[in-house]
Design a protein around this nucleic acid. Sequence first.
DNA 1: ATTATTATTAAACAGCGTTTAAAAACTAAA
DNA 2: TTTAGTTTTTAAACGCTGTTTAATAATAAT
Lengths: 208, 208
Amino acid sequence: MSKERQAHKREEIRNLILTTAREIISRDGVQALSIRKITKTIDYSPAIVYHYFKDKNEIIELLVSDGYKRILDLISKVNKNEDEPEKEIEEVFLNYIEGALSFSEEYKAFILNGDSEVLKKTTVLKEGISKISPTIKLLTDAIQRGIGKGRFMPGNAELTAQIMWTSAFGLIIKIIFEKNISEQQKNRLIEQYLKIMFNGILIRKEEK
Amino acid sequence: MSKERQAHKREEIRNLILTTAREIISRDGVQALSIRKITKTIDYSPAIVYHYFKDKNEIIELLVSDGYKRILDLISKVNKNEDEPEKEIEEVFLNYIEGALSFSEEYKAFILNGDSEVLKKTTVLKEGISKISPTIKLLTDAIQRGIGKGRFMPGNAELTAQIMWTSAFGLIIKIIFEKNISEQQKNRLIEQYLKIMFNGILIRKEEK
DNA sequence: ATTATTATTAAACAGCGTTTAAAAACTAAA
DNA sequence: TTTAGTTTTTAAACGCTGTTTAATAATAAT
């Protein structure tokens, strides 16, 4: 067996472990994932995992950050809208929310995973909660542009981006954990979220 | 030993277990809590726990809902402000955020606890995420009043309450998980959150 | 065919939540 | 005080978990 073939084989088993883990998570939830369950379904011994991954947490991390990357890709492809930056921002959030809901089990993993000390250091949480990230930057830019164009209220664009992002995060958690939420309810929530973010709830007198 | 004394003794041990669990959680985090660790520190055998509680989850539930109740008490004591309902709402959120941060480890427990299937059914999550709850009702009332007074934009008050609540939830998670967040940063975030909720980010033309 | 390298595993360790059945402690009655 | 009944507590085990160690099996290079 050639060197490349060997490396290929390695990669194959690695992926086998990863996809099996993903299947278990999306079928039975994160808390149902165990090394022994993975290796039993692929007919290997539990120990083999540790020759392909550091530990169980690395597997979860990889799955979660993979799903998360898909969202970020979606978001980064949003068209710039120079005239109406609010449309652009709206699209960012719609993609974020829809993306997060489309891999909700992995997203739950990211939230629920008990050993949070490890996850806290991952790209995922840096992206998801921490302040500096490509997405926040993208949002900040759009908001800054809106302010420049006189369409948005003047202020700290990055701070605004952070609030909008974390608020959407809260909304996503609500939707994910709510058992029997209908498509209609979901859409109403998202719509109202955007409405409040843009317009607030207060009636204001005319702006300059 | 009298009957009452006996019942009193039972209550004492129950509380001993509970407070020990609380200490472990606030010292080492939720994921560090184990029945064996509790019983070792109070010099009992692990089995004793199951004569005072259904299972480990009941203990966590009790601790979390206790902390949560403290928040709700805080919130329910907010003074009604008929002239400026926005002041009232602001106070609700300030109390919510400060309360949640003051028992952040229990709040983390509520979020992170792996066996979420159980927690999902608890009062805690019903309060925290689900739509109908005393707090949402309280908020809805205040918003409705604001709409009636012509101070808030017309619309579905309960939906608005839900969005504001879940958004605050997201913000709280951000603050809790952010490692080295300064008091100043925290206050800026909270301030900006309220600002956006009330005013949005869009510059609007004069309202009717 | 022998050596070296890599892949895989059996077995064990230390921990977990929980259950069962027995023991210990205590109360009430004889 | 002794006996019987009740409550409290535990030792031991079950079946699970993630992970490590050392040995084995399989492959590659010499």
